[in-house]
């Protein structure tokens, strides 16, 4: 008889609540639990596994450069972030929404933090799934946007994104003041991921309010670096490094920055099928590397990936 080799890890990935239902004083229709596993992804024969959550991206204003394959699929509601978010949850079955407030960027439309906060309020009122509120990446503007949006979403236990090594304080304050979680963003670097976790906890963000985003890269565009960084973080957490035990989120929308994924080219097959599988393959890599939550773009990618997650956790 072959002896089955089982690993027993001394560490455990933290289980982070995302979204507050009326039980927790919020108005979400569900509370997602990210992480909590005691072994590598989906290895139920040797430990507790966790089911990754699958969310969808919603952008406050979709520009001309947004992939047409997605616009065609989602249709006109894509012009209205509230209707788009509702479709993601009600039609496509997203577990959560990642609302990206890109228009607040002073280099773009420079939408005011007040207007952004009002959009967040409307989305929360009309769409009941847990919400990630993501800024534009402009440090100064994000500070104000997070302050107002965090306030507008008080008690809903949203994820505020993204705290970085050079700009984590304002977002940490916006989160802790209103009971939200923080997405800690590190640029494919295990040491920075750990350092940022230390800084956030020292600054007063409770460890059970931090989700790590080590930056997923799509296939063909540095996926292997991101894959190994995530895998190393997960392994370090499992062997007991408390500062690397946050569940990880992977934003797969980056897969669409590969134009070859949907360039019209008969030799490479149907561009719609190819684009979707490009996104799915990137998502699978993130799952195998240990992602606890995914942000996807194409509704079909969501359907396919959910089925895979069902089979892997079933």
């Amino acid at each position: 008889m072959v002896t089955i080799p089982k690993e027993s890890w001394s560490g455990k990935i933290k289980e982070i609540a995302f979204g507050a239902t009326d039980e927790e004083g919020g108005t979400r229709d569900r509370k997602l639990l990210l992480g909590g596993e005691t072994t590598l992804p989906f290895l139920a024969f040797e430990g507790k596994v966790s089911r990754p959550a699958i969310g969808m991206e919603v952008i406050d204003h979709v520009g001309d450069d947004y992939p047409h394959i997605i616009i065609d699929e989602i249709g006109d509601v894509i012009k209205d972030p509230v209707a788009w978010a509702r479709a993601c949850v009600e039609v496509y079955g997203a577990d959560f929404i990642c609302l990206k407030l890109l228009s607040t960027n002073p280099e773009e439309a420079n939408v005011s933090a007040e207007d952004a906060a009002s959009l967040v309020s409307t989305v929360l009122a009309q769409v009941k799934a847990p919400l990630i509120i993501q800024g534009s990446g402009d440090y100064d503007k994000d500070a104000r946007v997070m302050e107002l949006c965090g306030d507008a979403a008080k008690g809903e236990r949203c994820l505020l994104a993204r705290a970085e090594q050079d700009s984590y304080k304002s977002i940490a304050v916006a989160a802790t003041a209103n009971g939200h979680d923080v997405v800690a963003f590190s640029n494919i670097d295990v040491n920075i991921a750990k350092q940022l976790n230390i800084m956030l906890t020292e600054f007063g963000v409770p460890a059970d309010h931090i989700v790590s985003d080590p930056l997923m890269a799509g296939i063909g565009f540095g996926m292997e670096y991101a894959y190994s960084a995530m895998e190393r973080i997960k392994l370090a957490g499992l062997v007991g490094d408390k500062m690397l035990q946050s569940p990880m989120i992977a934003d797969i929308s980056v897969a669409w920055s590969a134009k070859e994924a949907y360039r019209v080219d008969a030799k490479l097959g149907d561009e719609r099928e190819r684009a979707i599988f490009w996104e799915v393959a990137s998502a699978l890599a993130a799952l195998m590397a240990g992602a606890n939550a995914l942000i996807l773009r194409h509704p079909k990618s969501v359907t396919i990936t959910r089925k895979v997650v069902d089979e892997l956790t079933g």
Partner: peptide, 20 residues
């Protein structure tokens, strides 16, 4: 297997077998 799946698959394969 069709090209629409094979092209992403070979891309993923090249990535994962790259010498770190």
């Amino acid at each position: 297997l069709d090209a629409a799946r094979l092209y992403p698959l070979t891309t993923l394969r090249t990535n994962i077998f790259t010498d770190p």
